[in-house]
Design a protein around this nucleic acid. Structure first.
Length: 806
RNA sequence: GCCCGGGUGGCCCAACGGUAGAGGCGGCCGGCUUAAACCCGGCUCAAGUGUGGGUUCGACUCCCACCCCGGGCACCA
């Protein structure tokens, strides 16, 4: 036995069979004494085969799941697939294969590999979001939101990807480009479906207090929501009799407003002045790609409209311009310009030779955006601007010229897509009745097969005549189905609810069952979803709880965001040829090595650079554990009990238990140092060969197996079985004996002025005076002190003595 | 520009304000071997923690300023 080699493939197959045959990781929804823990990794988009990032996600998640189980929790750890989406559809366009075929092929491959990795999943709860049994309920939820006006249609300037031929949500536009394909995004006026996420802006902000998420993710969401407080103030154009409200965060600078600017898209621009020059400017601005328009370094442009509006605080007539640095989507689409105290307005004023009037003192140069006393502001002169802020708003409110107001950067979520491979929107357009929801008992509205997936600016579904033409559910007259499909982020905004009750045919979930599992206790995934998915899912929970459909308002109580795995310092990509394939790695070294290495590489929340040589080190470590386990395996396997005798090995084992436990407790994910601790234990086991008793060896090896189990479950199970005959996952997590952690004797470090000069042996419980005396008596100290005076001694019991010498 | 992370031996990475070095890689020596690889044992090695200040008996750790790398946001009034 002992001269055989560590054969991960055989060991891993053995235990995977046991777990599958015995349904080890399945949990029931019945009430249970144990506390629950819902551990979830972000659901994968199945395309081709899993990549190294998936391996990392599931290695982290599975370690958490195993650790929780052995600490007495009833753990829900399910799996599914985010199966709708553009890549499968684009593939279909190229090859003519139905996206369902290629998607399900990928799902089969993902499932095969996840099983091969030995991830402890309850597979009975698995589904893909493209399956009618799932998206039936996505549609059902859509209809509930529709009924409450939280899903609605409106005409708006929307982001259009000319390459994918579909609209995009704001969140899917990065630097003016399509998040998916990188094409420059255009602006189009279209009627589209939206979710009213802006109604929830404040709650999305406030409720972040309740959740344990990395601060930077919270900050990113805060920035995205972009709440700003200010005032809405009306400027009136007397000539035309139009009031123009503007939003400002700086009502204290109202007296410094020397001109007024409207966005090119503002509906009243041509009413103000309709000339070829204005028309041309507006057209050019509207058609400019978002990336160029949004470039703040671009020189300011604009056209005077030859009209004035009245500044309500001082009655001044100020000139009006149209300029593209003002955005229609934010605030009211028009601004008061205060060039002395706003950098953008200042730039514009310089360019057009407009008056720049300082109204707040401070700073050497203009524009000055800081605080200070007010000047040139009528009766507010001399007041500090922070006070003037409120005084001016109060005054405007009293006069009916303005009011306090809050604006958000967040826009409503545009959810319709002019694409095929997505969840159909369950609405019928009837000329008589308007928008008519498909009755619940006719759900799901199944995605029909079509001949041609190619996008043509309208959904490919529009060509499915038999499907599109229906009778209106309300009046029975001929009507047409909605042909847009939903953004796939809708699918992933509630999938974690369905895992709780996946086979429910009468409802998306049973509320009582949901209450037994939700919220997700530990959510794990990439930081790239910090805004999109995580914000949308939070919105869904709040909306659904407002509809009295569930009892949670935050889906993910604790979030862990993992860092990226790079190679040669660069993101892995096929074009760079630096891709590490998990399947090849598992093939060559086994799943335990692959999983352990990816956790050992560094703190999992950080990015880490892949080193091929490092894999060998971890494999060697696991191999050494297996080898020694076979060497010391007892003839008769008996339950494990900790030897009472303190030896170097038994002490080390208890130390490792303590270290690994601390590294995984209290939200810590220090798997790298936990694995290093088990490595130390294994090294100690090898050192103990010949000197340690068989019982100490058995305890050391069994402990190593037990501790490595969350990271290398197959080997952990194997080693533990060899030592004890028992199943390690049924064993409680080990507890370190404090007595074994304590030392009788310590090394006392002696410092002079903070520098180490000697190391002495001392009793661990020696009193402070004795330690100080020991230090003073040291020969090395005497040599260093050399007659100088010891003015002070700082004693840290059990550690060191620092003598301060002058 | 603003906001987050991060800079420690040749490399990846550890260190409640208390001995800078746990673990791994790489390297070296020895054992095993006809030999090499694997494996086992040992070891060395080196840097003083990005820079400059400060607080402290004592700073990788706390504070200030700055540099470099990575990420996020950014014409949002």
């Amino acid at each position: 036995m002992a001269d055989q080699r560590y054969d991960p493939a055989a060991i891993e197959a053995k235990w995977q069979r046991v777990w599958a045959d015995e349904h080890t990781w399945e949990v029931s929804n019945d009430p249970d004494e144990r506390p629950k823990a819902y551990v979830l990794e972000m659901l994968p988009y199945p395309s081709g085969e899993p990549h190294i990032g998936h391996l990392k996600t599931y290695s982290v998640g599975d370690a958490v799941a195993h650790f929780r189980r052995r600490n007495g929790y009833r753990v829900l750890h399910p799996m599914g697939y985010d199966a709708f989406g553009l890549p499968a559809e684009n593939h279909a366009i190229r090859t003519g294969r139905h996206p369902r075929e290629s998607t399900e092929e990928s799902i089969a491959e993902f499932q095969r590999q996840f099983r091969r990795w030995g991830v402890s999943i309850d597979w009975t709860r698995e589904f893909g979001t493209h399956e009618p049994r799932y998206y039936r309920w996505t549609q059902w939820i859509f209809l509930r939101l529709f009924e409450r006006g939280l899903a609605y249609r409106k005409q708006a300037a929307v982001k259009w990807c000319p390459n994918d031929q579909t609209v995009l949500a704001n969140e899917q536009v990065i630097d003016g480009r399509c998040e998916r394909c990188g094409a420059l995004v255009e602006s189009r006026q279209l009627e589209q479906w939206f979710f009213r996420i802006t109604d929830y802006a404040d709650r999305l902000l406030d409720d972040m207090r309740e959740i344990d998420w990395p601060p930077h993710v919270k900050t990113m969401q805060e920035n995205w929501i972009g709440r700003s407080e200010g005032a809405e103030v009306s400027f009136r154009c007397e000539e035309l009799g139009i009031d123009f409200p503007v939003f400002t965060t700086r009502p204290d600078t109202l007296f410094g407003a020397t001109f007024f600017v409207m966005a090119p898209e503002h509906p009243d621009v041509l009413r103000m002045r309709d000339t070829p020059e204005v028309r041309e400017y507006v057209n050019r601005a509207v058609n400019e790609p978002a990336e160029e328009r949004g470039d703040e370094h671009k020189e300011k442009t604009g056209v005077p409209l030859g009209r004035t509006v009245t500044n309500p605080v001082n009655g001044e007539e100020i000139p009006v311009f149209v300029a593209d640095y003002v955005l229609m989507e934010y605030g009211t689409g028009a601004i008061m310009a205060v060039p002395a105290h706003d950098t953008r307005d200042h730039e514009f004023a310089e360019r057009f030779g407009l008056e720049i009037r300082r109204v707040i003192e401070g700073g050497e140069e203009l524009p000055y955006t800081g605080d200070g006393p007010m000047v040139s502001s009528g009766r507010f002169d001399g007041m500090h601007n922070r006070e003037a802020y409120d005084a001016i708003v109060d005054w405007l409110e009293a006069d009916g010229k303005g009011s306090r107001s809050v604006n958000y950067r967040l826009r409503d979520w545009l959810l319709s897509r002019q694409r095929y491979w997505g969840c159909p929107i369950p609405i019928v357009h009837c000329e008589e009745c308007g928008l008519v929801p498909v009755p619940d008992d006719q759900l799901p509205v199944e995605l029909p097969d079509v001949e041609d997936y190619a996008p043509k600016g309208r959904s490919p579904l529009a060509a499915a005549e038999d499907w599109v033409n229906v009778d209106c559910p309300r009046c029975d007259r001929p009507a047409r189905r909605e042909t847009d499909t939903m953004d796939t982020f809708v699918d992933s905004s509630w999938y974690f609810l369905r895992y709780c009750d996946p086979d429910n045919d009468g409802a998306p979930w049973d509320r009582v069952v949901l209450g037994r599992w939700m919220p997700v206790d530990q959510y794990i995934g990439g930081v790239e979803h910090a805004i999109l998915h995580l914000l949308y899912a939070r919105f869904f929970m709040k909306a659904l709880s407002d509809l009295d459909l569930l009892d949670v308002t935050e889906p993910f109580a604790r979030l862990f965001t993992q860092g990226m795995i790079t190679r040669d310092g660069a993101k892995m990509s096929k074009s760079k040829g630096n891709v590490v394939s998990p399947s090849a790695l598992v093939e060559s070294h086994g799943a335990d090595t692959a999983r352990s290495y990816i956790l050992f590489i560094g703190p999992p929340e950080h990015d880490a650079d892949w080193q091929d040589e490092g894999v060998g080190g971890v494999h060697r470590f696991l191999s050494r554990l297996w080898t020694i386990a076979n060497e010391v395996a007892p003839e008769v396997r008996a339950p494990l009990s900790a030897p009472a005798e303190a030896t170097p090995l038994t002490r080390k084992a208890h130390w490792a238990i303590d270290k690994v436990t601390r590294d995984m407790t209290g939200g810590r994910f220090s798997f790298n140092t936990a694995i290093a601790a088990v490595m130390e234990l294994v090294n100690e086991i090898y050192r103990g060969r010949g000197s340690e008793s068989p019982e100490a060896m058995r305890f050391g090896v069994a402990t190593a197996g037990s501790l490595i189990f969350p990271f290398a479950p197959h080997l952990g199970a194997e080693v533990y079985e060899l030592m004890t005959g028992a199943r390690v996952w049924e064993e409680p997590w080990p507890e370190a004996d404090p007595a074994m952690l304590a030392r009788d004797e310590i090394e006392l470090v002696v410092q002079i002025n903070g520098k180490v000069v000697d190391r002495l042996r001392a009793a661990a419980d020696a009193p402070v005076e004795e330690l100080e005396a020991l230090a003073r008596d040291s020969k090395r100290v005497a040599a260093r002190v050399d007659g100088r005076e010891i003015v002070k001694a700082v004693v840290v019991p059990g550690k060191l003595v620092n003598l301060v010498v002058k």
